[in-house]
Amino acid sequence: NQASVVANQLIPINTALTLVAMRSEVVTPVGIPAEDIPRLVSMQVNRAVPLGTTLMPDMVKGYA
């Protein structure tokens, strides 16, 4: 099972992602792969992401 990126805190809309804001977890459905965490740092989310939410490619500006 592949680990996905999960919000480690509430991430407000247009907030730049940080290492502290993300964690890796095996979840269903699978979201952005955990190995992409370094690439996600400083990218912005295009919606509010609640704690525990799996990050999907369409939630991160410039990711997809």
Rank of each mutant, 00 (worst) to 15 (best):
M56C: 06
M22G: 01
A7L: 05
P38S: 10
R23V: 06
Q9V: 11
N1G: 14
K61M: 14
L10K: 10
G62H: 09
V6K: 01
G52M: 04
A7K: 02
V20F: 14
A3S: 10
A48H: 14
V60Y: 01
M56Y: 07
M43K: 09
A64I: 15
I11Y: 02
L17K: 00
L19I: 09
V6Y: 00
P12Y: 06
A64G: 13
I11F: 01
G31I: 01
I13G: 08
T15W: 10
T15H: 13
R39Q: 10
P38G: 11
R47G: 05
N14S: 06
A21N: 15
P38V: 12
I32Q: 02
V30K: 14
S24L: 06
L19H: 07
P50V: 08
A48Q: 13
P29A: 03
N14T: 04
A3W: 11
S4L: 00
V41L: 09
V26S: 08
A3D: 05
K61L: 10
G52Y: 03
L10T: 11
T53R: 10
T54P: 05
V6I: 10
G62I: 03
M56D: 03
T18A: 07
Q44K: 13
A16S: 11
V41A: 04
V26N: 09
A34F: 05
T18H: 05
N1H: 13
L10F: 15
A64F: 15
P29D: 04
T53F: 10
L10I: 10
V5A: 08
V30C: 09
I37W: 01
T15P: 01
I37M: 13
I37Q: 01
P50S: 11
R23K: 10
A34G: 08
T15M: 11
L17E: 03
A34M: 06
L19C: 07
M59W: 11
S4G: 04
M56T: 10
E25T: 08
Q2Y: 14
N8T: 13
D58S: 14
L40S: 00
S42W: 08
P38W: 14
A48T: 14
V6F: 03
R39A: 10
V5D: 00
L10S: 13
L19K: 09
Q9M: 14
K61H: 13
N1W: 14
V30M: 15
V26L: 12
A64C: 11
A48D: 15
A64D: 14
L17P: 03
N14Y: 11
T28I: 13
V41G: 02
A16E: 14
N8S: 13
A48W: 13
G31D: 00
V49P: 05
V27K: 07
T15F: 13
M22P: 02
A3R: 12
P38E: 11
V20G: 15
L51C: 10
N46D: 07
V27Y: 03
A64W: 11
K61E: 13
L17I: 10
A34D: 06
I32R: 01
L55C: 04
Q2L: 14
L10D: 15
V45E: 02
V5K: 02
V45L: 08
G52D: 09
S4Y: 02
Q2P: 12
G31C: 04
E35Y: 12
V49C: 06
E25S: 10
Q9A: 12
P50I: 07
N1M: 15
P33T: 07
K61I: 15
E25W: 08
S42Y: 09
I13P: 12
T18S: 12
M59R: 00
M59L: 03
N1K: 14
V20S: 15
R23C: 06
M43L: 15
A7W: 03
T53L: 09
V30N: 11
S4C: 04
A21W: 06
I13R: 12
I11V: 07
L40D: 04
P57C: 06
P33V: 07
Q9D: 09
S42R: 10
N46M: 10
V27A: 05
N8L: 03
Y63Q: 03
L51W: 08
V20K: 15
P29S: 04
I37D: 02
S24E: 08
V60I: 14
V20Y: 13
T15R: 07
N8A: 14
D36E: 15
R47D: 05
L19G: 05
Q2T: 12
N14F: 10
V30T: 13
G31K: 04
N8P: 02
A21F: 13
G52R: 01
A7S: 08
V49W: 04
V41I: 15
T53W: 11
P57S: 07
Q9P: 02
M43H: 09
N46H: 06
A48I: 11
V27T: 11
A21R: 08
A48C: 10
N14R: 07
V26C: 07
V26K: 09
E35P: 06
A3Q: 09
G52E: 04
D36A: 13
I11K: 00
P57I: 05
V45G: 02
M56R: 08
T15Y: 12
V49S: 02
S24N: 05
V6M: 03
T28V: 13
V30P: 15
E25H: 08
P33S: 09
I32C: 05
R23M: 05
T54K: 01
P38T: 10
L51R: 15
L17S: 03
R47C: 09
S24Q: 10
A7F: 03
N46A: 14
M59N: 03
N46E: 08
P33I: 06
N46C: 07
N1S: 14
D36F: 14
L17Y: 00
N14V: 04
V6Q: 03
L51D: 12
A16L: 12
V45M: 00
V45T: 09
P33A: 06
I11D: 01
V60W: 00
P38H: 14
A48G: 09
T28S: 12
R23L: 05
T53I: 08
L51V: 15
T28G: 05
S42H: 13
P29R: 02
P33H: 09
P50Y: 09
N1E: 13
I37G: 00
P50N: 12
M22F: 04
N46P: 03
M22Y: 04
N14A: 07
P50M: 12
T18F: 05
R23W: 05
L55N: 03
Q44S: 12
V5I: 11
N8E: 05
P12A: 10
G62Y: 07
T54D: 01
L10P: 14
D58P: 06
R39E: 07
S42I: 04
I32Y: 01
V26F: 11
V27E: 01
Q44I: 15
L19W: 12
A16M: 14
Q44H: 14
E35R: 14
Q9F: 14
I37H: 00
L55Q: 01
V41Q: 05
A16H: 13
A21P: 02
I32T: 01
A16V: 12
P12T: 07
E25C: 08
L51I: 15
S24Y: 07
